[in-house]
Design a protein around this nucleic acid. Structure first.
Lengths: 163, 163
DNA sequence: GGCAATTACTTGGATGTCCAACTACTCGCA
DNA sequence: TGCGAGTAGTTGGACATCCAAGTAATTGCC
Protein backbone atom coordinates (compact mmCIF):
# COMPACT_ATOMS: atom_id res chain seq x y z
CA UNK A 1 0.00 0.00 0.00
CA UNK A 2 2.60 2.53 1.12
CA UNK A 3 5.13 3.08 -1.65
CA UNK A 4 8.75 2.12 -0.99
CA UNK A 5 10.08 5.51 -1.97
CA UNK A 6 9.02 9.10 -1.66
CA UNK A 7 7.16 9.71 -4.89
CA UNK A 8 8.00 13.40 -4.87
CA UNK A 9 11.73 12.76 -4.44
CA UNK A 10 11.44 10.37 -7.35
CA UNK A 11 9.66 13.00 -9.41
CA UNK A 12 12.50 15.42 -8.68
CA UNK A 13 15.04 12.89 -9.96
CA UNK A 14 13.10 12.34 -13.16
CA UNK A 15 12.73 16.07 -13.53
CA UNK A 16 16.46 16.60 -13.29
CA UNK A 17 17.15 13.78 -15.71
CA UNK A 18 15.01 15.57 -18.27
CA UNK A 19 16.77 18.84 -17.55
CA UNK A 20 13.43 20.42 -16.83
CA UNK A 21 13.30 23.54 -14.67
CA UNK A 22 11.43 24.96 -11.70
CA UNK A 23 12.11 21.78 -9.76
CA UNK A 24 11.65 23.32 -6.33
CA UNK A 25 8.38 24.90 -7.39
CA UNK A 26 7.21 21.61 -8.88
CA UNK A 27 8.08 19.77 -5.67
CA UNK A 28 6.32 22.35 -3.50
CA UNK A 29 3.22 22.32 -5.69
CA UNK A 30 3.11 18.54 -5.71
CA UNK A 31 3.59 18.55 -1.98
CA UNK A 32 0.67 20.91 -1.45
CA UNK A 33 -1.53 18.85 -3.69
CA UNK A 34 -0.65 15.70 -1.82
CA UNK A 35 -1.11 17.36 1.58
CA UNK A 36 -4.55 18.48 0.53
CA UNK A 37 -5.40 14.98 -0.60
CA UNK A 38 -4.30 13.51 2.73
CA UNK A 39 -6.25 15.99 4.82
CA UNK A 40 -9.38 15.89 2.74
CA UNK A 41 -9.37 12.11 2.90
CA UNK A 42 -8.99 12.02 6.67
CA UNK A 43 -11.54 14.75 7.27
CA UNK A 44 -14.14 13.25 4.99
CA UNK A 45 -13.64 9.83 6.53
CA UNK A 46 -14.31 11.38 9.90
CA UNK A 47 -17.39 13.27 8.75
CA UNK A 48 -18.91 10.51 6.65
CA UNK A 49 -20.65 8.81 9.61
CA UNK A 50 -22.44 12.11 10.22
CA UNK A 51 -23.58 12.30 6.63
CA UNK A 52 -21.38 15.34 6.09
CA UNK A 53 -18.54 16.25 3.77
CA UNK A 54 -15.90 18.90 4.38
CA UNK A 55 -17.51 21.34 1.92
CA UNK A 56 -20.86 21.03 3.56
CA UNK A 57 -19.29 21.28 6.99
CA UNK A 58 -17.51 24.49 6.02
CA UNK A 59 -20.71 26.04 4.76
CA UNK A 60 -22.57 24.98 7.86
CA UNK A 61 -19.91 26.42 10.17
CA UNK A 62 -19.91 29.67 8.25
CA UNK A 63 -23.66 30.05 8.56
CA UNK A 64 -23.55 29.13 12.23
CA UNK A 65 -21.04 31.92 12.80
CA UNK A 66 -23.43 34.57 11.52
CA UNK A 67 -25.43 36.56 14.08
CA UNK A 68 -28.86 35.58 12.85
CA UNK A 69 -27.93 32.10 11.73
CA UNK A 70 -28.57 32.90 8.10
CA UNK A 71 -26.50 34.19 5.19
CA UNK A 72 -27.15 35.17 1.58
CA UNK A 73 -25.93 32.58 -0.91
CA UNK A 74 -23.57 35.07 -2.42
CA UNK A 75 -21.86 35.82 0.88
CA UNK A 76 -21.29 32.13 1.41
CA UNK A 77 -19.53 31.76 -1.90
CA UNK A 78 -17.47 34.85 -1.19
CA UNK A 79 -16.27 33.65 2.20
CA UNK A 80 -15.63 30.08 1.12
CA UNK A 81 -14.11 31.32 -2.11
CA UNK A 82 -16.10 28.99 -4.30
CA UNK A 83 -18.23 29.53 -7.38
CA UNK A 84 -21.91 30.51 -6.93
CA UNK A 85 -22.92 27.29 -8.62
CA UNK A 86 -21.02 25.35 -5.98
CA UNK A 87 -22.92 27.17 -3.26
CA UNK A 88 -26.22 26.27 -4.88
CA UNK A 89 -25.11 22.67 -4.96
CA UNK A 90 -23.86 22.63 -1.37
CA UNK A 91 -26.96 24.31 0.02
CA UNK A 92 -29.15 21.95 -1.98
CA UNK A 93 -27.66 19.01 -0.17
CA UNK A 94 -27.67 20.65 3.24
CA UNK A 95 -31.31 21.51 2.72
CA UNK A 96 -32.12 18.02 1.53
CA UNK A 97 -30.74 16.76 4.85
CA UNK A 98 -32.66 19.33 6.86
CA UNK A 99 -29.56 21.14 8.09
CA UNK A 100 -30.35 24.47 6.50
CA UNK A 101 -33.42 26.11 5.05
CA UNK A 102 -33.73 28.52 2.13
CA UNK A 103 -35.55 31.77 2.85
CA UNK A 104 -36.29 34.70 0.60
CA UNK A 105 -34.07 37.71 1.20
CA UNK A 106 -36.16 40.22 3.18
CA UNK A 107 -35.29 43.28 1.09
CA UNK A 108 -33.83 42.00 -2.17
CA UNK A 109 -36.15 39.74 -4.04
CA UNK A 110 -33.31 38.36 -6.13
CA UNK A 111 -31.60 37.06 -3.04
CA UNK A 112 -31.86 33.88 -1.05
CA UNK A 113 -30.77 33.26 2.50
CA UNK A 114 -29.55 29.95 3.82
CA UNK A 115 -30.64 29.57 7.44
CA UNK A 116 -29.24 26.91 9.72
CA UNK A 117 -31.76 24.68 11.49
CA UNK A 118 -31.54 23.32 15.02
CA UNK A 119 -30.53 19.98 13.59
CA UNK A 120 -27.85 21.79 11.66
CA UNK A 121 -26.53 23.53 14.75
CA UNK A 122 -26.37 20.30 16.69
CA UNK A 123 -24.58 18.56 13.87
CA UNK A 124 -21.98 21.33 13.51
CA UNK A 125 -21.10 20.92 17.16
CA UNK A 126 -20.74 17.20 16.83
CA UNK A 127 -18.74 17.45 13.63
CA UNK A 128 -16.44 20.07 15.09
CA UNK A 129 -15.69 17.88 18.10
CA UNK A 130 -14.76 15.04 15.78
CA UNK A 131 -12.52 17.24 13.67
CA UNK A 132 -10.84 18.71 16.73
CA UNK A 133 -10.08 15.20 17.89
CA UNK A 134 -8.26 14.40 14.67
CA UNK A 135 -6.82 17.91 14.48
CA UNK A 136 -8.35 18.43 11.05
CA UNK A 137 -6.29 15.62 9.65
CA UNK A 138 -3.06 16.82 11.20
CA UNK A 139 -3.28 14.09 13.86
CA UNK A 140 0.40 13.45 14.16
CA UNK A 141 1.49 16.98 13.44
CA UNK A 142 2.03 19.14 16.50
CA UNK A 143 1.09 22.79 16.80
CA UNK A 144 4.64 23.91 16.06
CA UNK A 145 4.66 22.12 12.74
CA UNK A 146 1.15 23.31 11.99
CA UNK A 147 2.23 26.89 12.48
CA UNK A 148 5.23 26.27 10.25
CA UNK A 149 2.91 25.06 7.52
CA UNK A 150 0.66 28.06 7.96
CA UNK A 151 3.60 30.46 7.80
CA UNK A 152 5.24 28.71 4.88
CA UNK A 153 2.07 29.07 2.84
CA UNK A 154 1.70 32.75 3.61
CA UNK A 155 3.75 33.97 0.61
CA UNK A 156 1.59 31.98 -1.76
CA UNK A 157 -1.63 33.20 -0.21
CA UNK A 158 -0.29 36.71 -0.28
CA UNK A 159 0.46 36.41 -3.99
CA UNK A 160 -3.18 35.45 -4.50
CA UNK A 161 -4.37 38.51 -2.62
CA UNK A 162 -5.59 36.64 0.44
CA UNK A 163 -3.75 38.96 2.83
CA UNK B 1 -12.86 40.65 -5.75
CA UNK B 2 -10.09 40.31 -3.20
CA UNK B 3 -11.52 40.19 0.31
CA UNK B 4 -10.67 43.01 2.66
CA UNK B 5 -9.45 40.72 5.39
CA UNK B 6 -7.59 37.46 5.59
CA UNK B 7 -10.38 34.91 5.71
CA UNK B 8 -8.28 32.45 7.66
CA UNK B 9 -7.38 35.00 10.33
CA UNK B 10 -11.07 35.73 10.59
CA UNK B 11 -11.85 32.06 10.92
CA UNK B 12 -9.34 31.85 13.77
CA UNK B 13 -11.09 34.70 15.58
CA UNK B 14 -14.48 33.05 15.21
CA UNK B 15 -12.97 29.80 16.34
CA UNK B 16 -11.61 31.35 19.50
CA UNK B 17 -14.90 33.12 20.17
CA UNK B 18 -16.61 29.73 20.16
CA UNK B 19 -13.92 28.30 22.43
CA UNK B 20 -13.30 25.61 19.87
CA UNK B 21 -9.97 23.81 19.90
CA UNK B 22 -7.22 22.76 17.51
CA UNK B 23 -7.07 26.26 16.11
CA UNK B 24 -3.55 25.96 14.73
CA UNK B 25 -4.39 22.70 13.04
CA UNK B 26 -7.57 24.20 11.62
CA UNK B 27 -5.66 27.17 10.27
CA UNK B 28 -2.97 24.98 8.74
CA UNK B 29 -5.51 22.69 7.14
CA UNK B 30 -7.50 25.59 5.76
CA UNK B 31 -4.29 27.10 4.50
CA UNK B 32 -3.33 23.94 2.66
CA UNK B 33 -6.76 23.67 1.14
CA UNK B 34 -6.62 27.25 -0.05
CA UNK B 35 -3.07 26.86 -1.38
CA UNK B 36 -4.15 23.87 -3.36
CA UNK B 37 -7.09 25.80 -4.77
CA UNK B 38 -4.83 28.67 -5.85
CA UNK B 39 -2.28 26.43 -7.54
CA UNK B 40 -4.82 24.21 -9.23
CA UNK B 41 -6.59 27.25 -10.59
CA UNK B 42 -3.44 28.79 -12.00
CA UNK B 43 -2.15 25.55 -13.43
CA UNK B 44 -5.42 24.62 -15.08
CA UNK B 45 -5.78 28.11 -16.54
CA UNK B 46 -2.35 27.70 -18.05
CA UNK B 47 -3.07 24.23 -19.43
CA UNK B 48 -6.59 24.92 -20.70
CA UNK B 49 -5.41 26.39 -24.04
CA UNK B 50 -3.63 23.09 -24.67
CA UNK B 51 -6.77 21.12 -23.94
CA UNK B 52 -5.14 19.66 -20.85
CA UNK B 53 -5.94 19.58 -17.15
CA UNK B 54 -3.45 19.05 -14.35
CA UNK B 55 -4.63 15.48 -13.74
CA UNK B 56 -4.20 14.56 -17.35
CA UNK B 57 -0.87 16.35 -17.48
CA UNK B 58 0.38 14.41 -14.48
CA UNK B 59 -0.61 11.11 -16.04
CA UNK B 60 0.98 12.06 -19.32
CA UNK B 61 4.25 13.08 -17.66
CA UNK B 62 4.32 9.87 -15.69
CA UNK B 63 3.90 7.76 -18.80
CA UNK B 64 6.49 9.80 -20.67
CA UNK B 65 8.99 9.08 -17.89
CA UNK B 66 8.75 5.35 -18.39
CA UNK B 67 11.40 3.65 -20.50
CA UNK B 68 9.10 2.24 -23.13
CA UNK B 69 6.58 5.06 -23.04
CA UNK B 70 3.84 2.85 -21.68
CA UNK B 71 2.58 1.90 -18.22
CA UNK B 72 -0.05 -0.45 -16.81
CA UNK B 73 -3.15 1.36 -15.59
CA UNK B 74 -2.57 0.08 -12.10
CA UNK B 75 0.94 1.50 -11.91
CA UNK B 76 -0.37 4.88 -12.93
CA UNK B 77 -2.90 4.94 -10.13
CA UNK B 78 -0.26 3.80 -7.69
CA UNK B 79 2.21 6.51 -8.59
CA UNK B 80 -0.36 9.28 -8.82
CA UNK B 81 -2.04 7.95 -5.69
CA UNK B 82 -5.52 8.01 -7.15
CA UNK B 83 -8.30 5.44 -7.34
CA UNK B 84 -8.26 2.96 -10.25
CA UNK B 85 -11.56 4.38 -11.44
CA UNK B 86 -9.92 7.78 -11.73
CA UNK B 87 -7.19 6.31 -13.89
CA UNK B 88 -9.75 4.77 -16.20
CA UNK B 89 -11.41 8.16 -16.48
CA UNK B 90 -8.17 10.06 -17.08
CA UNK B 91 -6.87 7.64 -19.67
CA UNK B 92 -10.26 7.68 -21.41
CA UNK B 93 -9.92 11.39 -21.97
CA UNK B 94 -6.27 11.26 -22.96
CA UNK B 95 -7.09 8.53 -25.43
CA UNK B 96 -10.07 10.46 -26.78
CA UNK B 97 -7.65 13.30 -27.56
CA UNK B 98 -5.11 11.00 -29.16
CA UNK B 99 -2.45 11.58 -26.51
CA UNK B 100 -2.24 8.00 -25.31
CA UNK B 101 -3.30 4.64 -26.63
CA UNK B 102 -4.53 1.60 -24.76
CA UNK B 103 -2.71 -1.64 -25.47
CA UNK B 104 -3.22 -5.12 -24.05
CA UNK B 105 -0.64 -6.10 -21.45
CA UNK B 106 1.78 -8.48 -23.18
CA UNK B 107 1.86 -11.11 -20.44
CA UNK B 108 -1.14 -10.48 -18.20
CA UNK B 109 -4.38 -10.60 -20.09
CA UNK B 110 -6.16 -8.77 -17.28
CA UNK B 111 -3.92 -5.80 -17.72
CA UNK B 112 -3.98 -2.76 -19.94
CA UNK B 113 -1.10 -0.48 -20.86
CA UNK B 114 -1.45 3.19 -21.59
CA UNK B 115 1.10 4.17 -24.23
CA UNK B 116 1.95 7.77 -25.00
CA UNK B 117 1.67 8.84 -28.64
CA UNK B 118 3.96 11.23 -30.52
CA UNK B 119 1.29 13.89 -30.18
CA UNK B 120 1.24 13.19 -26.48
CA UNK B 121 4.99 13.56 -26.18
CA UNK B 122 4.99 16.83 -28.01
CA UNK B 123 2.20 18.15 -25.85
CA UNK B 124 3.93 17.18 -22.62
CA UNK B 125 6.95 19.19 -23.67
CA UNK B 126 4.85 22.20 -24.47
CA UNK B 127 2.79 21.94 -21.31
CA UNK B 128 5.88 21.55 -19.17
CA UNK B 129 7.43 24.68 -20.64
CA UNK B 130 4.29 26.60 -19.81
CA UNK B 131 4.19 25.28 -16.26
CA UNK B 132 7.86 26.03 -15.73
CA UNK B 133 7.21 29.58 -16.83
CA UNK B 134 4.57 30.04 -14.14
CA UNK B 135 6.54 27.94 -11.68
CA UNK B 136 3.63 25.58 -11.24
CA UNK B 137 1.52 28.37 -9.87
CA UNK B 138 4.17 29.59 -7.49
CA UNK B 139 4.94 32.52 -9.78
CA UNK B 140 5.71 35.03 -7.08
CA UNK B 141 7.19 32.55 -4.66
CA UNK B 142 10.95 32.15 -4.83
CA UNK B 143 12.83 28.89 -4.50
CA UNK B 144 13.62 29.56 -0.85
CA UNK B 145 9.97 29.85 0.03
CA UNK B 146 9.14 26.87 -2.13
CA UNK B 147 11.63 24.76 -0.24
CA UNK B 148 10.18 26.01 3.04
CA UNK B 149 6.75 24.85 1.91
CA UNK B 150 8.12 21.49 0.88
CA UNK B 151 9.90 21.05 4.20
CA UNK B 152 6.97 22.25 6.26
CA UNK B 153 4.71 19.66 4.68
CA UNK B 154 7.13 16.82 5.28
CA UNK B 155 5.77 15.88 8.72
CA UNK B 156 2.28 15.55 7.32
CA UNK B 157 3.43 13.48 4.38
CA UNK B 158 5.47 11.35 6.72
CA UNK B 159 2.44 10.71 8.89
CA UNK B 160 0.65 9.46 5.79
CA UNK B 161 3.49 7.07 5.03
CA UNK B 162 4.80 8.95 2.01
CA UNK B 163 8.38 8.87 3.25
C1' DG C 1 -5.30 -30.21 -11.24
C1' DG C 2 -8.94 -27.40 -9.83
C1' DC C 3 -11.44 -24.21 -7.11
C1' DA C 4 -11.19 -20.20 -3.98
C1' DA C 5 -9.02 -15.91 -3.26
C1' DT C 6 -6.82 -12.15 -5.32
C1' DT C 7 -5.82 -8.79 -8.81
C1' DA C 8 -6.81 -5.57 -12.95
C1' DC C 9 -9.87 -2.76 -14.93
C1' DT C 10 -14.45 -0.88 -16.08
C1' DT C 11 -19.03 0.78 -15.04
C1' DG C 12 -22.60 3.26 -12.56
C1' DG C 13 -23.69 6.38 -8.95
C1' DA C 14 -22.72 10.17 -5.63
C1' DT C 15 -20.09 14.48 -4.67
C1' DG C 16 -17.72 18.59 -5.67
C1' DT C 17 -15.87 22.27 -8.79
C1' DC C 18 -15.98 25.25 -12.57
C1' DC C 19 -18.00 27.84 -16.73
C1' DA C 20 -21.65 29.57 -19.69
C1' DA C 21 -26.20 30.74 -20.26
C1' DC C 22 -30.66 31.98 -18.47
C1' DT C 23 -34.20 34.19 -15.32
C1' DA C 24 -35.45 37.62 -12.23
C1' DC C 25 -34.74 41.63 -9.99
C1' DT C 26 -32.38 46.10 -8.67
C1' DC C 27 -29.98 50.33 -9.84
C1' DG C 28 -28.42 54.31 -12.13
C1' DC C 29 -28.90 57.74 -15.23
C1' DA C 30 -30.78 60.19 -19.10
C1' DT D 1 -40.08 57.15 -15.51
C1' DG D 2 -38.22 53.85 -18.16
C1' DC D 3 -34.48 51.38 -20.32
C1' DG D 4 -29.90 49.36 -20.14
C1' DA D 5 -26.34 47.62 -17.13
C1' DG D 6 -25.22 45.02 -13.34
C1' DT D 7 -26.26 41.51 -9.61
C1' DA D 8 -28.25 37.03 -7.38
C1' DG D 9 -29.18 32.37 -8.08
C1' DT D 10 -30.16 28.37 -10.69
C1' DT D 11 -29.48 25.09 -14.38
C1' DG D 12 -26.99 22.19 -17.59
C1' DG D 13 -22.63 20.47 -19.12
C1' DA D 14 -17.71 19.14 -18.49
C1' DC D 15 -14.24 17.26 -15.30
C1' DA D 16 -12.32 14.98 -11.40
C1' DT D 17 -12.65 11.85 -7.34
C1' DC D 18 -14.27 8.21 -4.67
C1' DC D 19 -16.92 3.77 -3.57
C1' DA D 20 -19.30 -0.44 -4.69
C1' DA D 21 -20.21 -3.89 -7.77
C1' DG D 22 -19.29 -6.61 -11.85
C1' DT D 23 -16.19 -9.06 -15.37
C1' DA D 24 -12.17 -11.43 -16.56
C1' DA D 25 -7.87 -13.51 -15.72
C1' DT D 26 -4.12 -15.04 -12.59
C1' DT D 27 -2.47 -17.15 -8.29
C1' DG D 28 -2.13 -19.99 -4.52
C1' DC D 29 -2.97 -23.85 -1.95
C1' DC D 30 -5.04 -28.25 -0.79
Amino acid sequence: MTPDVDLIEEAKRNWHARRWGAVEAMAAATSISRANQILLGRINDELAPLGLTFSRYEALVLISFSRSGELPMGKIGERLQVHPASVTNTIDRLERDGLVERRPHPTDRRGTLAAITDTGRALVEEATEKLERIRFGLDDVDDGDAVRVFDALRPLRRSAGDL
